[in-house]
Design a protein around this nucleic acid. Sequence first.
DNA 1: GTCTATAGCCGGATAGAC
DNA 2: GTCTATCCGGCTATAGAC
Lengths: 199, 199
Amino acid sequence: MPVTSTRELIIEKADTLFYEGGYEATSFAEIAAAVGISRGNFYHHFKTKDDILNAVIRRRVMSTRIMLDSWQADGAGPRDRILSFVHMLIANRSKIMAFGCPVGTLCTELAKLDHVAQTHAAEIFGLFRDWLAGQFRVLGAGDRAEQLAMHILSWSQGVAVMAVAFRDEAFIRTEVARIESWLSALPNLPHAAKESQCS
Amino acid sequence: MPVTSTRELIIEKADTLFYEGGYEATSFAEIAAAVGISRGNFYHHFKTKDDILNAVIRRRVMSTRIMLDSWQADGAGPRDRILSFVHMLIANRSKIMAFGCPVGTLCTELAKLDHVAQTHAAEIFGLFRDWLAGQFRVLGAGDRAEQLAMHILSWSQGVAVMAVAFRDEAFIRTEVARIESWLSALPNLPHAAKESQCS
DNA sequence: GTCTATAGCCGGATAGAC
DNA sequence: GTCTATCCGGCTATAGAC
């Protein structure tokens, strides 16, 4: 028995292919070729294509949780932790310029396909939102914590879309710097964030 | 001869279907059914699916130009004109929550498909960027006009992505209000924008 | 310009041997 | 658990009648 099971390998390869080529456009044949198994063998592991999609989303949810936990553990404070999130745009810039954000692009594709898994995929955004809201709460944002979380999440999504449209790395860096200075300008006293200049 | 030619009708219906269902997922049969012609008749007007895509993009470029011209003519000033752009998010909120932004979602889909028309589709963003930069230039933004244009374009794209992911109309309104106050906070003296609080 | 008919391919999915 | 062989349907695209 291999260290990584065939099932896990299928999910892993499908994850990459769904990201880089889109869910609908990725065929069983492509996934099978990437894994190195026959198409027929496929159905021993997954009954339908939707099953693979759900497994891929579950995998992404799990890896997101792990990533957020590590940011939580490693970050010196809430601002530093939020920066971990923001700096994903820099770290993954090449892939983002080529394929966009994995979460955003999947959600929009599933929306157009009117796919049942759309809600499931949006859960990943939910994880980021809740975690970010937690950081803003520590910064004293109070009731506005969730709104600020959605704002920064939305901001990063906009950057990803424009980055893929114009293939512009400089734009990513400019916007990340903008987010950083917006974040430093946020007061950290309780309730003081309610009249931030930028809100 | 009809007022609207069959060719124009095909482009119009394809435009809607590509937006609502995605380019790849939309078949000739669906477009033909929407127009009310047979599949075979289709190829009298368009040789390939890519031809339709290009025609759809050309149509969108033209209608964008017309829209920008009307905003230019009707707006009382640059801030007012920029608000015309921003308020598209409110006016089209239902469609945006269901299918995202027509331009952003097409660009990301074509990027994943590695489609040659990707650059063509990004031209639409280019029109908005240049027009918005013109408005910011009137506001005295100088060299930063284009950067501010990209910022507000990116901002609206982020809102569209999150709106489709969470189907949240309140979020759209909150962010639009945020953009409005950000815009009013921008100084309109030449060079004064370089140290705006939010930049 | 519009139709029907059909070619040819590739998609997801199944059956059954090994 | 993996394979080959195959079904069925929908797809793009073509041919040719009207």
